[in-house]
Design a binder for these strands. Structure first.
Length: 289
DNA sequence: GGTATTTGACCAAA
DNA sequence: TTTGGTCAAATACC
């Protein structure tokens, strides 16, 4: 690990410890001054960490440029990564609720598994699914499901192509995707739409927050094979947002811890945090908390 | 027996 | 040559 990264981790750990102390302080209303000092320290530490990361990013960009120059001179020994498909895809991260590691994911459609592949650099294999009605109705929808390396409770699902079939599973809130004008993009069910936030090709963005779900009836790690794992009671259950950050296979999402009293909470929470970091503690103290 | 999953082989992209 | 995506025979389940 690079020295700079160690420093960042160290700073973030300090921040975490201070936040813990702050939390205990806040229980005691008499120590408001102490709490303010702690928050100032936390903000300062996070600011440092962010600055370091930004400097690192600049360094990486320089290295990338140099690397490209070298590539131009000699491309024979450099492995080129497969270009991302130009087809529009939709990537969604799902969190499987506690005790549901072998639970299921239902998105309102019937899927049939046609392959599984070990992915270079990933611990977990990627499952390949196509619409059950591929041959009967020439539905070309495909999806890829992979368990997150960093958090086994998270499934990363990539949809490719759109459903042209009429049939789907039992989801009563299913919307008709055929009528949608979004070519090549799978329209999620209304249940999903109401319950999650999706990101298109921009999952690196820190403001993309995924609402999370638990599933039933999805046999991702099919132990026994056979016997229709996709039919039955497909119930989406909305979970509380839980702290998790996933990365892997180029699919990255951030899921934020926040109370979900209403649907805007997570967004405003992140937005506030962002503002605090961007504008510093002066802004912070000028706000009513 | 019908249907779904598993898994090694094959192919194309980079 | 490596890797990701798909095919299809073998296998398992209902």
């Amino acid at each position: 690990m690079v020295m700079e990264e160690k420093l960042v981790i160290n700073e973030l750990e300090q921040g975490r410890e201070l936040a813990k102390r702050l939390m205990s302080n806040l229980k005691d209303t008499s120590s408001i001054e102490s709490s303010k000092n702690l928050i100032s320290e936390i903000l300062s530490i996070y600011q440092n960490a962010i600055s370091r990361l930004r400097v690192n990013e600049d360094d990486k960009n320089i290295l990338k440029r140099r690397s490209r120059e070298i590539d131009d001179k000699d491309t024979r020994n450099i492995f080129k990564k497969r270009k991302i498909s130009e087809k529009k895809t939709e990537k969604v991260s799902f969190i499987v609720g506690a005790g549901q590691e072998k639970g299921s994911i239902d998105d309102g459609y019937c899927w049939r598994k046609y392959g599984q592949k070990e992915i270079h650099g990933s611990i977990n294999p990627r499952g390949y699914f196509r619409c059950t009605h591929r041959f009967t109705q020439k539905c070309l929808a495909v999806k890829q499901v992979q368990k997150s390396d960093t958090d086994p409770s998270i499934f990363e699902v990539k949809y490719v192509g759109s459903h042209t079939c009429n049939n789907n599973t039992t989801s009563p809130t299913k919307v008709d995707t055929v009528t949608e004008k979004q070519e090549d993009i799978v329209k999620p069910t209304k249940t999903e739409e109401a319950a999650m936030m999706m990101s298109l090709e921009d999952l690196e963005s820190k403001k993309n927050i995924f609402r999370t779900f638990s599933f039933s009836n999805y046999e991702f790690e099919n132990a026994g094979g056979g016997g229709g794992g996709w039919k039955g009671n497909n119930i989406f259950q909305e979970n509380q947002l839980s702290p998790a950050t996933t990365s892997g296979s180029g699919i990255t999402s951030e899921i934020l811890t926040a109370p979900v009293e209403n649907s805007e909470t997570a967004d405003s929470y992140f937005s506030s945090l962002d503002n605090i970091i961007e504008f510093g503690q002066d802004w912070f103290w000028s706000c009513d908390i």
